[in-house]
Amino acid sequence: MTQAQLALDGDTDVVIRRSFSHPPEKVWRALTEPALIRQWLSPDLTDCRMDARPGGSFRYDWPAFFFSGPVLEARAPQHMVLVEHFNGDTTQGPTVTTTLAADGSGTRMTVVMRYQDAAARATAIEQGFTDGIAEVYGRIEQVSFPT
């Protein structure tokens, strides 16, 4: 299994590539069915809605914030475009294009996150890192001090 590859493309794009040992049909289900999304996106999710159709929308809730936005394009099991707003701020947020390509019996996934400008991209990387660290430490605290 190859590890996730991260690339910065031009001023605005973050590109993530990852291979999975299951075919696109299964990866698509895991990316679009709320019951499955809940199992991998984050252990802290409190609600998860996804209507992966053109004109549909999604919303992922954490205790203190949420991501939501419109689904612009969806063509199972290979292509989805959505816009990801933070806490309902529709003036900002990347356009996220996910592409699944069959690769033998597995899948090559490419996720392109296109931000409004270089500053928005840099902020997103820092924020993702900061939130991730907080989440990891939160989990360690839960393990250390069970209630």
């Binding site: 299994m1 590890q3 996730a4 590859q5 991260l6 910065l8 993530i16 990852r18 999975f20 040992s21 299951h22 299964k26 990866v27 289900r29 895991a30 069915e33 019951a35 499955l36 199992q39 991998w40 996106l41 984050s42 990387i125 820092e126 993702g128 890192f129 991730g132 660290i133």
Partner: peptide, 29 residues
């Protein structure tokens, strides 16, 4: 910074691997 950011994605993808491994046994819906 970039390495940490990538690691966060990889953590998520490893959970996704596990979901995919279990998926055959799961009913849809």
């Amino acid at each position: 910074w970039l390495g940490q950011y990538r690691a966060l994605w990889e953590d998520q993808f490893q959970r996704l691997d596990a979901v995919l491994d279990r998926l055959d046994d799961q009913p849809e819906g």
